[in-house]
Design a protein around this nucleic acid. Structure first.
Length: 692
DNA sequence: ATAGGGTTAG
């Protein structure tokens, strides 16, 4: 057997520590493991110096379990080492294992290993994450006994702990004894104020820092700006922006992000854009801040353009960007794009985030794709009240009141507490289904069992519920005795009920209130005209029309649109602007002919706006935007696929009746979302139960 | 050798 002589160089612990430190800095797991192996073959893995660096390396590579294995297998001598323990507890805290960090600190004390300011600041920050105020108090006392109570690191951790636990007086007491030149404690306090919605306090702390001449740093500004935008005070926001520019902190990305966020939240998109454009580097937060700001102002299409620009810049969306984009898809009913964002979120493993799940359910429900909403819900592993509520509301809006209420029972069964919005969904479902008694019971349990005070949205649903079921007097009574001020939505519900139940007198009363509440709104005028129309009071119809002219209110033009082939096709009434207008009008003619012949359809000319002959009215109705859009759907979308149409106003009564028959004759499902709810039309019936 | 505070959501 030939003897191969190998010259092996065994590294010493200093060399290996240096290598491991490099692996930690770069989160390099493979070289880190090789160094670990080398430490074992060199018999120096148990050296306290090496163990410390090994643990640090595994934590930096986000492998807390391996780090714990290394720690627990360290030799007894190393386990007496204060630094090794500190490193281990710090690593646990940084990896979010704050509970374990506290437990390990407890063991450290039990083994009589002393702590220093390094250990204690970390442990206090773990306590802060766990909101463990009592344990934190004990650590505070121990820190004082160990003589490190005045270390700026310990003090800032204490301020953070107390303020996160809302013990602001203790936080301020620590702050008053702290080193004046250190802004970290102040920053911690400002952050907690901002998180706890104490925005005025946050701003005055900032002012005090500034007044005392304390150094402000790149951590001070983001949370202060957050409070400035939350108070809606653009003046102080601009002042802070000036300070940032003068001190040069605008070069920090977090500060720039906070500025973009503030201006976007306050609706100053020019300023937000300018900061955005001038930033030296941007990350996903920069883009998301702008996107969410746009979405909040209802500028969903711009937000979605921004999302695709972000993707084009190869910025990977995270769960916040994804949730924001999905919420804009919901806001502009962009189902196709929503599906793409959904697919991308699955590819990136983001769909398990609660925020993404919630916005997916909401997006599908608001786009009328309730089965997809249901699918996301069923596949989700983590649900909160928002998840359940999104589907409860979704079912209700899509005309599935029973499923909505059934889901609420399941929600209670799974131990999730309903919130304010849940009850809006439930009452909406009840009004949809005409369940007067259930509605009353939900309203009562909301107050008595869950101690949630009903707001205008709940009363609006109740008025609608009572009105629909013909209990008009009761509805009026509720409007007068409820604890909140009546608003236009509630009176509109009542007016709609008056139209259905032909109560002209009450309709006039409701309309009068609406003219006072929202004089420039055309809808009440049109609804009142419809009431007169149904009662055959043509002179009054004409009077309302001239009133509208005199007041200069005009009906918002109705338009309908549908997605297809990656584009949106939009139609106005009588619109011949589409490149294939001839085909569309031919299809409308065919549609109307077939439903007349096969289903005995007759135009409901009461819904025609202009005074003309009966034939003229019928022709006007036939070219309403929703009929044009459905015709386009029949031409372009394959058989078997639902035709999805969206309308900005409520669907007109004649279109509703006609399209139900179109769905039957053409054996197609038509899903029409109007300003009020979804209409799932199939085989001649509609999910709204003909009341909307 | 070891330490503290930040921006984005439904």
């Amino acid at each position: 057997m030939p003897c191969r002589s190998l010259i092996r160089v065994y590294p010493d612990s200093y060399t290996l520590s240096a290598t491991l430190r490099a692996c930690s800095t770069g989160s390099l797991i493979r070289p880190g493991q090789q160094a670990h192996a080398l430490a074992i073959t060199s018999s120096i893995a148990g050296d306290p110096l090496v163990s410390t660096r090994l643990i640090d390396m595994y934590f930096s590579c986000h492998l807390p379990v391996v780090a714990a294995l290394v720690f627990d297998s360290a030799p007894p001598l190393a386990l007496k080492n204060q630094v090794l323990w500190t490193m281990f507890i710090t690593g646990l805290t940084k990896n979010g294992e704050t509970r374990t960090a506290m437990e390990r600190f407890h063991s450290m004390r039990a083994l009589d290993i002393e702590s220093n300011q390094f250990t204690l600041s970390t442990v206090l920050s773990a306590c802060a994450s766990e909101r463990a105020l009592r344990f934190g108090f004990q650590v505070h006392g121990y820190a004082v006994r160990m003589g490190v109570g005045s270390s700026p690191f310990v003090q800032s951790s204490l301020v953070s702990l107390y303020s996160k636990c809302s013990d602001f007086s203790s936080a301020k007491r620590v702050l008053e004894t702290s080193n004046l030149d250190d802004p970290v404690s102040w920053n911690a306090l400002i952050v907690s104020c901002a998180r706890g919605a104490l925005h005025e306090d946050a701003l005055s702390l900032f002012a005090e820092m500034h007044h005392q001449g304390l150094p402000l740093d790149e951590f001070t500004y983001p949370s202060t700006l957050n409070s400035a935008s939350s108070t809606g005070d653009i003046g102080s926001g601009r002042c802070i922006h000036c300070l940032i520019l003068r001190s040069g902190f605008d070069s920090h990305m977090h500060v720039g992000n906070a500025l973009v966020d503030m201006y976007a939240k306050l609706g100053s998109f020019d300023c937000a854009r300018r900061v955005f454009n001038e930033m030296l580097e941007r990350d996903v937060v920069t883009w998301t801040s702008l996107l969410v700001g746009l979405a909040r102002q209802g500028l969903h299409d711009v937000a979605l353009q921004l999302y695709s620009t972000m993707r084009a810049h190869r910025v990977e969306p995270d769960e916040f960007a994804t949730a924001g984009a999905l919420s804009s898809c919901a806001g502009s009913t962009a189902l196709e794009l929503g599906r793409q964002v959904h697919a991308a979120s699955v590819r990136c493993g983001l769909e398990t985030f609660l925020s993404v799940t919630n916005s997916l359910v909401t997006m599908y429900a608001k786009c009328g794709s309730i089965n997809d909403a249901c699918g996301v819900f069923d596949a989700s592993t983590c649900r909160d009240a928002v998840t359940w509520t999104a589907l409860i509301v979704g079912y209700a809006q899509n005309g599935r009141g029973r499923d909505s209420l059934r889901l609420y029972d399941a929600m209670l069964f799974s131990g999730i507490r309903p919130d304010y919005v849940t009850f809006i969904g439930l009452l909406f479902a009840c009004s949809h289904f005409g369940l007067v008694e259930s509605g009353r019971a939900y309203l009562e349990s909301m107050e008595k069992v869950y101690h949630i005070i009903p707001g205008p949205e709940h009363y609006a649903c109740m008025v609608d519920l009572l009105g629909r079921s013909g209990r008009l007097e009761e509805a009026v009574e509720l409007l007068e005795r409820m604890g909140v001020e009546s608003d236009a939505t509630m009176w509109k519900s009542l007016l709609a009920a008056c139209r259905v139940h032909r109560d002209v007198l009450l309709a006039e009363r409701a309309a009068q209130r609406l003219f006072e509440l929202a004089p420039e709104d055309a809808v009440p005028h049109v609804m009142l005209a419809n009431v007169y129309c149904a009662a055959g009071r043509w002179a009054d119809v004409a009077r309302v029309r001239s009133l509208m002219r005199a007041r200069g209110v005009s009906k918002e033009p109705g338009w309908s649109w549908m997605e297809g082939g990656g584009a949106v096709h939009a139609f106005r009434a009588g619109d011949r602007g589409h490149p294939r207008a001839a085909d569309i009008f031919a299809m409308v003619a065919e549609m109307m002919q077939r439903i007349k012949k096969e289903e005995g359809y007759k135009a409901e000319t009461g819904f025609a706006l202009h005074d003309e002959s009966e034939e003229g009215k019928a022709a006007e109705l036939a070219h309403h935007s929703e009929k044009l859009a459905v015709a386009w759907g029949l031409i372009t979308s394959p058989f078997g696929k639902p035709i999805r149409v969206y309308k900005n106003l409520r669907v007109c009564g004649d279109c509703h009746a006609a399209l139900k028959l179109v769905a039957k004759v053409y054996e197609r499902v038509i899903i029409l979302r109007d300003a009020n709810c979804f209409h799932h039309m199939r085989e001649g019936t509609c999910s709204c139960g003909d009341y909307w």
